[in-house]
Design a binder for these strands. Sequence first.
DNA 1: CTGAAAGCGCTAACAG
DNA 2: CTGTTAGCGCTTTCAG
Lengths: 338, 338
Amino acid sequence: MKPTIRDVAKLAGVSISTVSRVMNAPDSVVESKRVKVLQAIERLQYQPNAFARGLIYKKSHTLGVLIPDIRNPYYAGVIRGMEDAAKSLGYSIIICNTDRDKERLISYLENCNEKQVDGILFTSETVYPDYYAEIRRFRLPVVLVSTHSLEYELPSVKINDEAAAYDAVSYLIGLGHRRIGMISLPLSDPIAGLPRYQGYMRALREHGLPHEGGQVIYAEHWYDEARSAAGRLFGQHPQTTAVFAASDEFAMGVLSFLHERGIRVPDEVSVVGFDNIRMSEMTIPQLTTMAQPVYELGYKGVEKLHRLIEHGSVTPLREYLPHSLIVRSSAAPGKGTQ
Amino acid sequence: MKPTIRDVAKLAGVSISTVSRVMNAPDSVVESKRVKVLQAIERLQYQPNAFARGLIYKKSHTLGVLIPDIRNPYYAGVIRGMEDAAKSLGYSIIICNTDRDKERLISYLENCNEKQVDGILFTSETVYPDYYAEIRRFRLPVVLVSTHSLEYELPSVKINDEAAAYDAVSYLIGLGHRRIGMISLPLSDPIAGLPRYQGYMRALREHGLPHEGGQVIYAEHWYDEARSAAGRLFGQHPQTTAVFAASDEFAMGVLSFLHERGIRVPDEVSVVGFDNIRMSEMTIPQLTTMAQPVYELGYKGVEKLHRLIEHGSVTPLREYLPHSLIVRSSAAPGKGTQ
DNA sequence: CTGAAAGCGCTAACAG
DNA sequence: CTGTTAGCGCTTTCAG
């Protein structure tokens, strides 16, 4: 069996309270005994039992991360940031892949609650009323990462998606492009869908480009879907000279479609992605993309959650990290307008 | 405060043991009381405290995953398999990114031990003597995933890397290629390095190709390094018509180099990767690659660990899952030898 | 400065 | 079938 505090006490010839003290308030124990205890601890390779401590402190030093799917490189980057922050603050992280499935998510929430996690990092998902209800029910400290909620008073950290999309499209316009298509996520997605679409539309509008609905084609998350969406885009709008993709994965689908059609990037068509996942510098040509501070999002999310746990509240409630355009080789000046 | 078993007992008008019983052996309680208790539980939204249970059962239903870096898509895939298996077996998973750093890894090991994890999934790393010492010291059940150990009696699940590399290279040879280069990981890597190199060499040898050392260039894990390695390969061996890359990321580096040089794939040079990460079907051209059953590796790893925890031992100790070649578009028959 | 004792929330004998 | 009681391993008063 693993050694307990009693074993240490016996070996050191002191009471268990003394052992406890050398671990929690070493100064309150005379040196002679302290040394004895420390030696006993070393000899027995004693480690205090986290259950017993948890029972008293009501803290597990564990955080639950709810995230759609760790295989998505964007999420993996966020988690890495979380994990580093967690380590430096003394937390461990439990991963829960939700697949954006309601039941799955709620079952994880219950699970986390039962495991006595100190808080939850709710990542990249919409906060539906029933989720919020559960959160309240369990009185769990929650921080939203890469998502936010306008209805509920939940702390969050994300970028400003609308502004980022606006900047990406403005860049393309600045390059001289007039006919800019977009491969968008469904507008029902309140984070990566609607705001990025709105940013795109605002850029067209403010720069005086025709924008009756824009040249927007919708796709659902995956590469394949973006590829066929690109087909539809160029089918409907053959004169398109630039494409703004709502994610790097979408941009890769566009690149693939264009390559297949023998359309040269960026000579004939420019492409700008979104996220700056690592893969985006491995494409041919390398992708120009709107970068999210992926790692920081996760890192700050944990720091924020930590503050929330410690103080019961945080300011600012909703935090927006800066985005930045990474200029690589997939976008070039538009032809005939220079 | 969260409700305790005592609150439930009071509300239901029974003793705490009865409450405990309806949770652990419902049949041993008369219906009338059981219903009362169940109602009380529902009303109070009672959930048993995992610390208290853990203290008694000495089980946390939590598994620790030590893995180099979750951002690597290969590892992310493995973890996803682990997580699904864990969920279905009632475990949670704690992620520990080691960065292949000794101190970091050992600190996580201690951490996991203190948190009373029920077992460890040691993934894609060499088991050095000091790691093994810690494992023994903590008497932690461990399963190696995507790695194994011939020195120590540790259960493991991985593919047969030597055979997989052999098959990949044989495929290229079958396609008529005679001058096949390899971008290898350092041979000091006993999992993805040496065995894949050996498989490559054996294929050359058994098929009667010149193999005085082979045409091997070494690189360290990353895309960039593989790209420059490809430069060296073609510098030293200009007549190379096919490249076997020790990972898909390496293969992407090769693809990038070749594209930059205007060398067409697969018309002039064929490329075969290793792993079959999702991204490999998003390259241009799509990558032909030796697939590892990534998800299954993780899934089976957890199942194995579960058995180890339950029974104290498992057979077979070292398990090897099948690999399979995924033929896509980056490899074609070699010119002039058909 | 130190030990005895109470108790965190739950389970598991042990009587009844 | 059910309640009482003794811990699980640790921290924390409270005396001394």
